[in-house]
């Protein structure tokens, strides 16, 4: 697990901002943000975000860790890359949001942990790590039932027609999940990756 980010305790506390600059992907360029608003103005779903990227970045600088990590802004990003292409300071906005999302999930902020994105990512990772492949039925089922039994049923029924169509078009198979060759090797690789990540997190 990553080290927990520091929580500012006093006024003008830069500890969280500095931690973000160092530990978040693209954070080094975040320091160059000049608050022009191009990112928020370019964002197709900015209206659904608690805070647009520009404001979120200013809040990071202001040490508002709780408000930043408990916002829905990171999970709401649809990765359209308009902000990345247009940013006059070449701040990789989308990557920063993505990385902050990971931080929020690891630190247990419900808005991110319970988001659709995080649920789907967990289902996807479970399948990829277990079989070396993604199995459409199992990933979908895990994703749907992560919302609870009755919600899972409802979601499954609502998408039954699509599933049937996919089976008919041979885009979804019936039977045992596909697996990759040498699953043992894959597990070794993943174990090594986890070890490296743990080392970097300290």
């Amino acid at each position: 697990m990553n080290a927990l980010s520091p929580t500012p305790t006093k006024k003008y506390d830069l500890s969280f901002a500095r931690w973000v600059y160092r530990n978040v992907d693209g954070g080094d360029r975040l320091a160059l943000c000049m608050q022009c608003g191009t990112c928020s103005g370019s964002c197709p779903i900015g209206a659904q975000m608690d805070f647009g990227p520009r404001k979120l970045f200013m809040m990071i600088r202001a040490g508002m860790k709780e408000e930043v990590l408990s916002s829905n802004s990171m999970a709401a990003c649809v990765s359209c890359y308009n902000c990345v292409v247009r940013c006059p300071r070449k701040v990789p906005v989308k990557y920063i949001l993505q990385s902050l999302f990971t931080v929020a999930v690891r630190e247990g902020y419900a808005q991110s942990v319970d988001s659709d994105n995080a649920r789907f990512a967990r289902a996807f990772w479970w399948s990829a790590a277990k079989f070396g492949r993604t199995d459409e039925r199992l990933v979908t089922a895990r994703f749907y039932f992560s919302y609870g039994l009755s919600a899972g049923f409802k979601k499954s029924m609502a998408n039954l027609a699509i599933a049937k169509g996919m089976v008919k078009a041979k885009r979804m198979h019936l039977g045992l999940p596909h697996t990759c060759k040498n699953a043992g090797e894959l597990r070794k690789i993943l174990a090594k990756a986890a070890e490296i990540e743990a080392r970097h997190a300290t």
Binding site: Q35, C36, G37, T38, S40, G41, S42, G46, A47, G52, R54, K55
Partner: peptide
């Protein structure tokens, strides 16, 4: 002209 007013946060 489309964008974000950075003082009011209005899009």
């Amino acid at each position: 002209v489309c964008g974000e007013n950075t003082l009011t946060r209005d899009v």
